[in-house]
Amino acid sequence: MRKASHAYLGSYAMDFFDCNCSYGTPAYPPFRFARTPDQLLEAMDFCGIDRGLVYRAGMRFGSPLLWNDPTAADLANEPRLEPAWAVLPHQTGEQPPPEQFLSQMQASGVRALWAFPNEHHYRLDGLTFAGLLEALTANHIPLFVKLNAIELGDFMREFPDLTAVAVNQGPHSLERYLRPLFDAYPNLHLDTSYLIVEGLIEEFCERYGPGRLLFGSAFPDNCAGAAMLRLAQADIPEDTKEAVAAGNLDRLLAEVQI
């Protein structure tokens, strides 16, 4: 039983850096979403979220071919929003080979990538992505992986040293799948967006320490304020909360060598 009770200081001093948010118009849009970076900033302001690592809806629900470059261009002059790109297999010629792709990332100021295997219909494995994943590992580039826990386990077995962030792991409790993975792979991180079951954030921090959990809202799939309030009121020490809210993502991005 958890006995400690850690109250949020309520000073608005905490820096929230959302690792999982997006703008743009999908084919089946949410009732409320952000069409543009300005609208995303307004939504973040409403919830007290300072910064975002951002992808564009078209990179997930459409083709990264169309939206990786424009997203970086959109956000080039917005200090609160940092762009992330989505990956595709290079064998089809849709994305360049790893070395060239990393050069394009560098030129566009991109320090993080997303993989959407279900949306884009590929296997996230060594057969398909060995060169790119080895390069990401060598350069400490974080890969945000939207993959169910069984496939995530297969993936981590192949690339245990990659800096990976598992996202959208829920909304149910998937702990019976996830804990063996987090026990085995220290470079595997998790975003908070779907740690919605009562007590999961607290037990994750207690079991794995403050360094492997990242604040994510999954906006606009979900309400960003829900994720923000959940973390703000999590029953964890204040320094752990600050690390989860922003410090861990800042650290991962600072470690990128590109």
Binding site: F46, S173, E198, G225, L229
Partner: peptide
């Protein structure tokens, strides 16, 4: 409960427009 944390649920209402 316990499938949705009360604070997550309350947050969705408190930060609805």
């Amino acid at each position: 409960m316990p499938w949705y944390s009360p604070h997550f649920a309350a947050g969705a209402i408190m930060y609805a427009r």
